[in-house]
């Protein structure tokens, strides 16, 4: 009997598929489970890398939903500062599946997050998305009013969507110890007041990440039974870890959990696909060249390489790169709104 490896295609072997390949040659890395066309309406969410995904899809002519659009004429930088145009609604970055699940439960009227309003300097912030109003609002009541509008927008986005593209970003996060309410950032990072007795660090393990995503999927499919999902894992490392480990080791651990969950979901669920942007950016083939000088931010070239692979696999040329707003190379690292990066500022 010949070896079971004997008839495998070249893509199955490291020497032929990787050793001699240029980083930009991504053909064969991704074979979509289902076709994505420009007729599909796409909802994007996830960690800050998902902003790149949404922008590239929009630039290529895909119908990316935006249920909380910026006012006409708002300059791009200003819109980004206020959380417009980043995702399909102004939920900001959803780093964890725990947060995604909680948001969907809240939109469905199943939960009300604890400690919903954070304060800083006499201004009030939505604790679930403190970065979308960087100057805060006048009163807690206004925060609540804006949140009601936001949740309604999420409902409209879900009802309109055919495909959800979600980027898993982190396993580490902060919760309200008594209620389990998840927060997207640690209190004090943007607003709020850190209380060790109230705020607890969590580092979600594989079962927790998986359970939360499946619950989120159930909530979405309760509204849209035919919804399909494309998962990616953010290649952006942790800015800081509370795990006690070295941040590089903690990053590897977190990404391994997220990658394993994504792989399991794609392998076991017909409606879930996995796109390997994480591998394209982080692989040995890339030799780190898709990272900026800080070895954390993904370069525009990296994003373009990953998204070109995605688009080509779906039969779409990334022709509209020119239509998508191109970041200033000088500010490449600052182009994506990332609360995580604020931790860096705190460290300085």
């Amino acid at each position: 009997m010949p070896s079971p490896y004997a008839d495998l295609p070249p893509r199955a072997f490291w020497r032929t598929a990787v050793a001699g390949r240029e980083a930009a040659q991504t053909a064969g890395l991704y074979e979509p489970k289902f076709a994505l066309t420009k007729a599909h309406r796409i909802l994007t969410a996830g960690s800050c890398f998902a902003q790149h995904v949404g922008r590239a899809l929009r630039g290529a002519g895909f119908d990316v939903i935006d249920e909380e659009p910026a006012p006409a004429g708002m300059p791009a930088a200003l819109a980004q500062r206020f959380g417009y145009g980043l995702y399909s609604a102004r939920y900001g970055n959803l780093y964890t599946t725990r947060h995604l699940r909680q948001l969907l439960e809240e939109a469905a009227g199943l939960v009300s997050p604890a400690d919903p309003v954070w304060e800083r300097g006499g201004r009030f912030f939505d604790a679930q998305r403190p970065n979308v109003e960087p100057d805060g609002l006048d009163t807690p009541d206004l925060v609540a009013l804006h949140r009601r509008h936001h949740l309604a927008a999420i409902g409209r986005a879900l009802d309109a969507a055919d495909v959800v593209v979600f980027t898993l970003g982190l396993t580490e996060g902060w919760i309200d110890a008594e209620t389990g309410t998840a927060f997207p950032t640690a209190p004090e990072t943007i607003a709020g007041h850190y209380d060790p007795a109230r705020h607890r660090f969590v580092n979600d393990d594989y079962p927790r990440v998986l359970t939360d995503f499946l619950a989120a999927r159930d909530l979405i499919r309760a509204r849209r039974p035919d919804m399909r999902f494309v998962l990616t894992v953010s290649p952006v490392p942790l800015t800081a870890t509370m795990s006690g480990q070295h941040v590089e080791v903690a990053t590897a651990g977190s990404k391994a959990v997220l990658r394993a969950v994504a792989g399991h979901l794609a392998a076991t669920c017909d409606d879930i696909d996995y796109f390997p942007s994480y591998e394209i950016i982080t692989s040995q083939t890339a030799q780190g060249r898709f990272y900026a000088a800080n070895r954390r931010s993904v370069t525009e070239q990296g994003v373009q390489t990953a998204m070109a692979c995605f688009l080509a696999a779906h039969g779409v040329a990334p022709l509209a790169q020119a239509q998508a707003p191109m970041p200033d190379p000088e500010s490449e690292e600052d182009d994506v709104i990332c609360e995580e990066a604020l931790l860096d500022a705190l460290r300085r």
């Binding site: 006012p71 004429g73 206020f82 960087p134 805060g136």
Partner: peptide
């Protein structure tokens, strides 16, 4: 309206003009 603009966002938008 279904869309709502905070006062800081409105002021910043107007100032940009």
């Amino acid at each position: 309206h279904p869309h709502r603009l905070s006062r800081p966002a409105f002021d910043a938008l107007v100032d940009s003009h």
